[in-house]
Design a protein around this nucleic acid. Structure first.
Length: 544
RNA sequence: GGCCCCAUCGUCUAGAGGCCCAGGACACCGGGUUUUCAACCCGGCGACAGGGGUUCGAAUCCCCUUGGGGCUACCA
């Protein structure tokens, strides 16, 4: 039985890179009928945020990646949060200490920093100088009394090359001479990542460790620890990194960066107003704009919305809020560094599980291509069963606080049907919201008004359309169509010439649902009122 | 700087020595369809990073160069 795990550190939302790692682990476990574990790596007290673990779990659930053991549901090898496992780590630290495989250190971070700088300027590898005699417990007491930090380092004594058998990359060999004695217990009493990960993976029975390539260089350290502790060596597989179109690893810093450039590009942005929109102080904003600090994500999001700029989606929730389907994300992420080998691209979770194979994971880094993601979303919107899609759409509407949320199930289903071919849920929302806002709230897009209403005889046609509609006994898509087509024929123009002015009058712009249905959704009364308002606002009477 | 990983169209990739003057998808360009935006249909552009080997034969194997990425913390 194989066991895989996803072990995020709760520093914020789950981002796509993490989601991809989680997905591959999940796919591997599901494919081979194994178990998939969720473990929270919260050994860095400074960086953890209290709600992050819950948020990460919510994001995984949205993606449909379920776990068999985890902090919320427990399991045979709990607890599943590292902060709750300190007694366990202490036991193993003690063992290494007793066996003289590890030793105490009392260096301050300033001292270590100085050593690092020195090595840097001399262009040397920074290796920690192991003392000839390990400090005793008495030395520890003394150091504590003096207020010096106490850490524990692992003594790297092996001289033979360390060979990592990577399932994706093959054999990778390391020279232990390049690996300095590294810290395994921090001065705050928490183990470092290297130590906690090794102990937990052993105790939790993890058989396959699939993680990002950034961990490849850590693996020799981990294997050294495993050997020293008498643990088995699990199978390792290091996946390529997902890079951003702006170059480098796709990182959560991109959203703040994009916002900063947007603010810089816009002239005359009132900092006081912008700061207020983000719920932060002007000082915080200025510090952010200088590049000295970054406010938290909700503040970034709020300011971006205020400015009307679209930030690149990085976190899983960003994609949710931009109207992407979880099916899309899972499918797309799976194909970033893996493929089924038979040319298939659009696949369901089940198909992915059945086809997944570590042997087909590619080695090269891949770029996160938003265009292709959009195409995938379009395809999944088409393929997802109506009820499922309606559920996703409801959740989306609620999340973005859309007036369209007021639609009943039948209307929502109809809206979705009318939006066949939409690329995102956001698009569906934008094209439908006209029917859920008060007549006075319609915003007229100046460009559309100019082109459709003012340039030709759009206003005259709109007036005729209004009169025709007013005379209608019943307003249905069919009667509207008959009317508009008749009008077009009468005036010897294309249907577009009569449909477009009506579209602008009802929706405010030229992008909307099919106009016959749009009119019917609005009802005769509102339709006439909006036409009236449009004529009044843009009609020639304005000047007289 | 040191260590490690990687390298096929703009992007994601197929390709495990002859099936490849390299296939698919997205993007792009042209055309069609059309009440808008999409969607849809047809067509087109477009890559084996460079240089050496090995071999009868190399995108596929080896070496070097170049380029990209990662790591180099009391972060994970």
């Amino acid at each position: 039985m194989i066991v895989t795990r996803f072990a995020p550190s709760p520093t914020g939302y789950l981002h796509v890179g993490g989601a991809r790692t989680a997905l591959f682990n999940w796919l591997l476990a599901r494919r081979l009928g194994g178990r998939f574990l969720l473990r929270i790596e919260d050994t860095d007290v400074k960086r953890n945020t209290p709600t992050a673990a819950a948020q990460v779990m919510a994001d995984l659930r949205w993606l449909g990646l379920d776990w068999d053991e985890g902090p919320d549901i427990g399991g045979p090898s709990g607890p599943y949060s590292q902060s709750e496992r300190r007694p366990i780590y202490d036991r193993y630290i003690r063992r290494l200490l007793d066996e003289k495989k590890a030793y105490y250190c009392f260096d301050t971070s300033e001292e270590l920093g100085a050593l690092r700088d020195e090595a840097q300027t001399e262009k040397r590898h920074n290796l920690y100088q192991r003392p000839s005699q390990f400090p005793t417990e008495a030395d520890v007491q003394k150091a504590r009394a003096e207020g010096r930090p106490v850490t524990v380092r692992f003594a790297v004594t092996q001289t033979e090359p360390i060979v990592v058998e990577d399932e994706i990359r093959g054999q990778v060999t390391f020279n232990p001479a390049d690996i300095g004695d590294f810290i395994i217990l921090k001065s705050d009493g928490f183990p470092t990542y290297h130590f906690a990960v090794v102990v937990d993976d052993e105790l939790m029975g993890v058989t396959h460790i699939l993680r990002g390539q950034e961990h490849l260089m850590n693996t020799p350290n981990h294997q050294l620890l495993q050997k020293a502790l008498g643990f088995r060596i699990p199978k390792y597989a290091h996946m390529s990194v997902t890079v951003s179109d702006s170059g480098g690893k796709l990182s959560k810093r991109e959203r703040p960066k994009a916002l900063r450039t947007a603010v810089e590009a816009k002239v005359g942005v009132d900092h006081a107003v912008l700061a207020k929109a983000g719920g932060i102080s002007v000082e915080e904003l200025d510090s952010f704009l200088r590049g000295d600090s970054a406010p938290d994500m909700p503040a970034i999001d709020a300011m971006a919305e205020f400015l009307g700029v679209h930030l690149p989606e990085i976190n899983v929730v960003d994609f949710f809020r931009s109207g992407y389907l979880p099916e899309t994300m899972v499918n797309f992420l799976a194909l970033l560094g893996w493929n089924p080998g038979d040319g298939r691209e659009i696949m369901t979770r089940q198909e992915l599980i059945e086809a997944f194979d570590l042997l087909r994971v590619t080695k090269a880094n891949s770029l996160f291509d938003r265009n292709k993601l959009l195409a995938f979303n379009t395809e999944h919107i088409k393929r997802t069963p109506a009820e499922t899609l309606a559920g996703h759409f409801r959740a989306y509407l609620k999340a973005v606080d859309s007036p369209v949320a007021g639609a009943d199930d039948a209307l929502l289903a109809r809206i979705i049907r009318l939006n066949e071919g939409a690329r995102t849920l956001e698009q569906i929302e934008q094209k439908s919201r006209f029917a859920f806002i008060p007549n006075e709230a319609v915003c007229y897009d100046p460009e559309s008004v100019r082109k459709v209403l003012l340039k030709g005889d759009g206003l005259a046609i709109l007036r005729a359309v209004g009169q025709g509609l007013a005379a209608l006994k019943e307003l249905t898509p069919e009667t509207v169509e008959t009317l508009l087509r008749g009008l077009a024929e009468e005036k010897q123009v294309g249907l577009g010439k009569v449909a477009q002015p009506l579209r602008v009058a009802l929706c405010g712009n030229t992008v909307s649902l099919p106009i016959f249905d749009a009119a019917q959704m609005l009802g005769l009364n509102n339709t006439l009122k909006r036409i009236e308002r449009t004529l009044k606002e843009f009609g020639p009477s304005r000047g007289s």
